[in-house]
Each structure stands twice: as C-alpha cells, then as structure tokens.
C-alpha cells in the first residue's frame, strides 16, 4: 500500500452536513472529478492548496477546519 499523507480531512463529514452534498456536486464546485473527491476523502490524495481553499469555501469554513495534520 502506498504511503498515506499525514493529512487528515473532514470532507465527507462536512459534505454530509451540507445537505448530503454528493461527491460529484462537490467535485464540480471545486473543478475535480468525483473520483478525486473520493480519493481525497479516503486519504489517497492530498489536494492542492487551491483546491483545499475551494473546498473550505464551499462549506463556508476555514481550511484548518477541513484539513489537519495527523497527530495534532
């Protein structure tokens, strides 16, 4: 298994809290495919800083509310 990035995220939790927004809808909002949203949620991909900001803006929270450093 590939090394996982030490970055945690609450994308799935926030998406579900945001009217159960679909992965495809979130992907469309931030300009990535549904599969990339899935990869982010599963920790198989760390998004670019731009996408991280886009995700946090979709949910109306700060980047640090969506992403964190494992162990912190």
């Amino acid at each position: 298994m590939a090394r996982r990035p030490p970055i945690t995220n609450r994308v799935k939790e926030l998406r579900e809290a945001h009217g159960n927004m679909s992965q495809a809808a979130l992907g469309k909002e931030i300009g990535v495919t549904r599969q990339t949203v899935i990869a982010i949620e599963q920790g198989r991909y760390s998004p670019s800083l731009e996408s991280a900001f886009r995700i946090s803006r979709v949910f109306g929270v700060g980047v640090e509310d969506v992403f964190g450093w494992a162990g912190d």
Partner: peptide
C-alpha cells in the same frame, strides 16, 4: 456522463 471528463489536478 464521465466520458468528457478533462484531466483534473490529480490526473
């Protein structure tokens, strides 16, 4: 629906 997907940052 996914046939015209362009390359995103991960791709």
């Amino acid at each position: 629906s996914e046939a015209d997907d362009t390359l995103d940052e991960r791709d």
